[in-house]
């Protein structure tokens, strides 16, 4: 296959069940991403999305299997993999600058104070918080707090940025602006990013690849949807793109019905070879797997995709 910058190989997570045995949240999960790609995982609560992200971050360990990043199996947490937490997780006794500087000094221990400050300041500016450096998290709004979280994650120039529903606690307007910021930063810096979300529109706007997971326990990665929208898509006219509703409906259909019935519908599902759905390119509707479904009659399919 292509470049596998991140490769999750046959991981499983099991917890001891109430009646002796073990409950598997997921088994034999394979997932890979190329360098510079933005991947989004969508699935219902309890499907193990957060567990996958925590394993990738090194905060949790798989019961089985391995994760390989940039050619090396990961072991525990690493400064190469920055996490943006859902609850922003800022240290409330530190200022904005202090929070970012804490990450910077953790990565470059021998840097002097001025260098750390200058470096942290660059990332505070990048997320648009110039002027609020000396405020404490309690003085910031939810959106600003999450900006600090993003600045902190970016400041250590990680190989991968991991985001666990980073915007779910924000109001719609703030969420929109922050999505713009994240998209801009990721495009500018070629950042590889892996994000968990509940929000279908967020996934379509941000992701290059959307990973659909079925319901747990025993969740599987059912499909990989390649985003047919052009790289230079904008949030405001996203919904006018001819493929937009096709992708959106496909994902919503999955969440509404197929995520529940997937295991019985496709008993021969091969977790190593997950079907890749390419919407909008009729000759390639389904690259592999038994997905001939209902994608034949979408409007606007003749229109060529504008990039990639």
């Amino acid at each position: 296959m292509t470049d596998k910058f991140i490769s999750i190989e046959a991981i499983a997570k099991r917890y001891p069940g109430a009646s002796g045995g073990e409950i598997a949240v997921f088994e034999n999960l394979w997932l890979s991403m190329a360098r510079g790609e933005f991947g989004c995982v969508i699935g219902h609560s309890g499907c193990g999305k957060t567990t996958v992200l925590n394993i990738l971050a090194g905060l949790d360990e798989p019961s089985e299997g391995a994760v390989i990043v940039d050619g090396q199996a990961i072991e525990g947490t690493s400064l190469d993999r920055a996490v943006i937490f859902q609850s922003h997780a800022l240290l409330p006794w530190r200022t904005v600058l202090g929070n970012v500087a804490y990450a910077v000094t953790s990565k470059w221990r021998d840097w002097d104070r001025a260098k750390v400050k200058a470096h942290a300041q660059t990332f505070i500016d990048l997320v648009g918080l110039t002027g609020s450096e000396h405020k404490r998290p309690s003085e910031l709004s939810g959106g600003m707090k999450q900006r600090v979280g993003i600045a902190r994650a970016l400041s250590i120039t990680p190989k991968i940025m991991l985001m666990d529903e980073p915007f779910s606690a924000l109001d719609a307007l703030t969420r929109g602006t922050l999505q713009d910021e994240v998209r801009r930063i990721c495009l500018e810096t070629g950042q590889t990013a892996f994000m968990i979300t509940h929000d279908v529109d967020e996934a379509i706007y941000l992701a290059d690849k959307i990973f659909l997971m079925t319901n747990g326990p025993g969740a599987v990665l059912a499909e990989i949807v390649e985003n047919p929208l052009p790289k230079d898509r904008g949030r405001t006219d996203l919904h006018r793109h001819p493929y937009y509703y096709a992708v959106r409906n496909h994902i919503v259909d999955f969440l509404v019905s197929r995520s529940k019935t997937f295991a019985t519908d496709f008993p021969g599902h091969d977790p190593r070879n997950v079907p890749v759905v390419k919407i909008g390119k009729p000759e390639l509707v389904v690259a592999s797997g038994p997905e001939e479904l209902n994608q034949a009659s979408w409007p606007g399919l003749s229109r060529p995709s504008t990039s990639s």
């Binding site: 090194g58 905060l59 400064l79 993999r81 996490v83 937490f85 997780a89 953790s106």
Partner: peptide
């Protein structure tokens, strides 16, 4: 101590 603060320190390899 809140788990998330510990996790921040862990991801920063402190």
């Amino acid at each position: 101590v809140r788990k998330e603060w510990i996790n921040v320190a862990r991801t920063l390899e402190v």
